[in-house]
Structure formats: C-alpha cells, structure tokens
Write a protein that binds this DNA or RNA. Structure first.
Length: 115
DNA sequence: GGTTTGACCATAA
DNA sequence: CTTATGGCCAAAC
C-alpha cells in the first residue's frame, strides 16, 4: 500500500476543493466546524488544512461564513474584516451568538453524516 | 528535498 | 478566564 493516504489524481479533487464542495452543501442557517469538515473528508485531524483551504478561498459561491471553530466562534483573528462579515451573515441566517461571542453548536452545528 | 504558513485542536500551568 | 507549548495536516515557497 502506498504511504500516502490519497494521491491527487486527475479525477480526484484536492483537499481545498473537497472542502469547498462540502461547505457549499451546508444548508442555510447551519454551521459546521473545521473538525467536522476534516472528519467528513477522511482527515479527522486536518482541521488546519481545512482552514488553509478556506484561506485561499476568496470568491463566494462557498458559504465560508458557515464554518466556525470548535468553540462555535469565528476564528478569523487575522482577518478582522472577514470575521465581522461572517458574524453579520450568520446573524442574518437566524444564528444568534451567545454573550461570549460563540454560538450553540448543539443547535446550529450541522453534520452531513448525521443529517 | 526542506521551510514556512495558516481561518485548528488539545493539554498544561 | 488567559497564556504557552506541542501536535496535526496540506499547500505554497
């Protein structure tokens, strides 16, 4: 068996692309965590790679604002403008943040495998 | 090949 | 609660 879990074949999509594909499937008013996305792609510990994929993402079409961290809060510390926009978008989708700035993942967290 | 980055997660103090 | 450290992963340089 090959040492690499996956080889970027021609037909296979790279991780960033798979991340965008999954995030694009997130329904309105729902959010997913980096860990959930990574786990869905078969890399339960690649939460960082998920963040890197979204970092490269600049075009819409992908509701990147529906991706939050494990605490149910926006992690965009290095991109304050985007972070502020993200909370605004989520709030428009009916997602309300708690007093500490984090939402209830039990309620808004969406799992493609569970759903 | 190695090094750096980056929107994470977990644990410890 | 905050701060520090290590681990983890993939892509870009």
């Amino acid at each position: 068996m090959s040492t690499k879990p996956h080889a970027p074949s021609d037909g296979e999509r790279s991780f960033p692309e798979q991340v965008w594909a999954l995030v694009r499937q997130v329904p309105w008013g729902r959010v997913v965590t980096y860990g959930t996305v990574a786990r869905c792609l078969g890399r339960p510990r690649a939460s960082r790679a998920v963040g890197y994929a979204l970092f490269q993402l600049q075009d819409a079409e992908v509701p990147w604002h529906r991706v939050v961290n494990r605490h149910g809060g926006v992690s965009l510390g290095g991109h304050p403008g985007r972070a502020e926009s993200q909370r605004q978008r989520l709030r428009a989708e009916g997602v309300h943040f708690g007093p500490s700035g984090h939402l209830d993942l039990k309620r808004f967290g969406w799992d493609p495998t569970v759903e």
